[in-house]
Simulated assay, not measured.
Amino acid sequence: MITVQQEDFDHGREYEALRELANRDGAIVTFTGLVRDFNSQCSVSNVVIEHYSGMTEKYLMQICSDAKKRWNLGQVRIIHRIGTLEAFEQIVFVGVSSKHRQNAFEAAQFIMDILKTTAPFWKQETTAKGTQWVKRKDSDEAAAAKWSGA
Rank of each mutant, 00 (worst) to 15 (best):
65 S>W: 10
99 K>W: 11
123 K>L: 01
133 W>F: 07
114 I>D: 02
137 K>E: 15
139 S>Y: 15
146 K>Y: 01
141 E>F: 07
143 A>G: 03
6 Q>Y: 15
19 R>Y: 08
115 L>H: 10
22 A>F: 00
46 N>K: 00
29 V>F: 01
18 L>Q: 06
34 L>M: 00
117 T>H: 05
96 V>E: 03
24 R>T: 14
33 G>M: 05
11 H>F: 11
13 R>M: 00
40 S>W: 06
87 A>H: 09
88 F>R: 15
108 A>Q: 06
105 F>G: 02
14 E>D: 12
150 A>Q: 14
1 M>E: 04
106 E>F: 03
121 F>C: 01
60 L>Q: 05
150 A>S: 15
81 R>V: 07
111 I>L: 10
12 G>W: 04
132 Q>W: 05
144 A>W: 04
143 A>R: 05
83 G>L: 02
46 N>H: 03
65 S>T: 14
109 Q>I: 02
51 H>V: 08
112 M>A: 06
39 N>D: 15
100 H>W: 06
109 Q>A: 12
42 C>L: 14
101 R>Q: 02
49 I>Y: 04
28 I>T: 03
85 L>Q: 02
100 H>I: 08
35 V>K: 01
149 G>H: 13
118 T>L: 11
80 H>A: 09
91 I>N: 00
31 F>L: 11
34 L>I: 07
44 V>A: 03
42 C>N: 14
139 S>D: 13
15 Y>N: 07
98 S>M: 09
113 D>M: 06
116 K>P: 01
61 M>P: 11
125 E>I: 05
64 C>M: 12
94 V>M: 09
131 T>F: 06
70 R>K: 02
62 Q>C: 09
19 R>Q: 01
57 E>S: 00
8 D>I: 04
128 A>P: 06
99 K>Y: 13
49 I>V: 13
83 G>I: 00
41 Q>H: 12
148 S>G: 15
47 V>I: 04
49 I>H: 05
16 E>I: 15
21 L>S: 14
20 E>G: 10
135 K>V: 15
22 A>R: 01
111 I>K: 03
91 I>V: 14
34 L>H: 03
8 D>Q: 08
25 D>C: 07
26 G>Q: 01
59 Y>H: 14
68 K>Y: 08
72 N>K: 09
39 N>L: 11
109 Q>G: 10
66 D>V: 11
88 F>C: 13
40 S>Q: 02
128 A>N: 13
73 L>D: 08
69 K>P: 07
110 F>P: 01
32 T>S: 11
35 V>R: 02
29 V>P: 04
121 F>E: 04
101 R>F: 03
75 Q>Y: 02
147 W>P: 02
4 V>W: 03
74 G>M: 13
118 T>N: 08
101 R>L: 11
1 M>D: 05
47 V>W: 02
137 K>V: 13
74 G>R: 10
4 V>A: 04
81 R>A: 08
114 I>P: 03
129 K>R: 12
145 A>D: 12
40 S>M: 12
7 E>Y: 10
27 A>H: 05
50 E>H: 07
124 Q>H: 00
98 S>P: 14
24 R>F: 11
43 S>N: 13
4 V>R: 03
21 L>Y: 07
142 A>R: 04
79 I>G: 07
55 M>D: 09
5 Q>V: 09
62 Q>M: 15
148 S>C: 14
66 D>T: 13
